[in-house]
Design a binder for these strands. Structure first.
Ligand SMILES: [Mn+2]
Ligand SMILES: [Mn+2]
Ligand SMILES: [Zn+2]
Ligand SMILES: [Zn+2]
Lengths: 136, 136
DNA sequence: TCCGGATATTAGACAAAGTCCAGATCGACG
DNA sequence: CGTCGATCTGGACTTTGTCTAATATCCGGA
């Protein structure tokens, strides 16, 4: 599956997002790469040729994508949030030295023995992060 | 077990940390409460009566505690790091609305089916965070 | 006790991520 | 075209955390 700019409008609409030029560019940055990008990185990608999209719009748009369930947030680095175009259930491998973040398919991972939730609470998600370091 | 200021000096020494007045106060803030505190919260606790410890010292000290394995870092809120006096293996329950963070004993939790690590990598830790929300 | 070096603390400048707002711009529709 | 709600924007602002150079404290030896 190839994510072209033309695809993006439909993808956005299917998530109830009005496809503007900026939103298409930002979605394209995330989905064509299928990588975890910080707001700063999205900003850089979108403004490579010449400045096109403001910082405010990048942040507003990423938050909108998040609310609409188009992307997911990964909180793994204390200094910045990563945005993840992969919203299917999966976990993360984080290389602490390089900051490299990669996906772990959730299909074969089983988490069992969790205690029952406190009353009146519902699970919003389970984040599993494997922090690894280079041997030396 | 009661964590008094007097205990703190021994605890710090046992972790190869020179027990100064400020370090004792900061350790006491964390260990007497047995709660997850942000740097800001530590700062507030330590300086309740009158200003005693600078921001730089709070941050320096928490980083030192971290390096020496006296406390653990919990990265769960995109805006601030929490410091955890509980270093035994355990997981976390995060209430996203209130920001309340509580421990899940690791004893009965089993995580299986994780793929093998890439070569030359060693696990530094596995963080499991259950994000919950109030039903409404 | 006094001294000197090592260790620790400090104020405040600085940096980076993220938020906010009031005004400008866009674009769909008549 | 012209209107108007939706969107975008520069830039000020906030918050978390880092850095540095000066000061203070601690401690072992003379
Ligand atoms: Mn473009
Ligand atoms: Mn005190
Ligand atoms: Zn991912
Ligand atoms: Zn904990």
């Amino acid at each position: 599956m190839h994510y072209t700019r033309d695809n993006m409008a439909g993808l956005l609409r299917s998530h109830d997002i009005n496809p503007t030029h900026q939103r298409i560019e930002i979605a394209h940055a995330l989905f064509s790469r299928q990588e975890h990008l910080s707001a700063d990185q999205v900003m850089a990608v979108v403004n490579t040729r010449h400045s096109e999209t403001s910082k405010a719009t990048v942040y507003n748009t990423l938050k909108l994508f998040l609310e609409k369930g188009l992307v997911r947030e990964v909180i793994v680095d204390p200094s910045k949030v990563f945005f993840d175009p992969n919203t299917s259930p999966h976990h993360h491998l984080y290389e602490v030295d390089s900051g490299k973040l990669s996906d772990i398919d959730a299909e074969h991972v089983v988490i069992s023995g969790l205690p029952p939730l406190p009353a009146g609470m519902v699970t919003e998600g389970i984040d599993l992060i494997v922090r690894v370091r280079r041997t030396r």
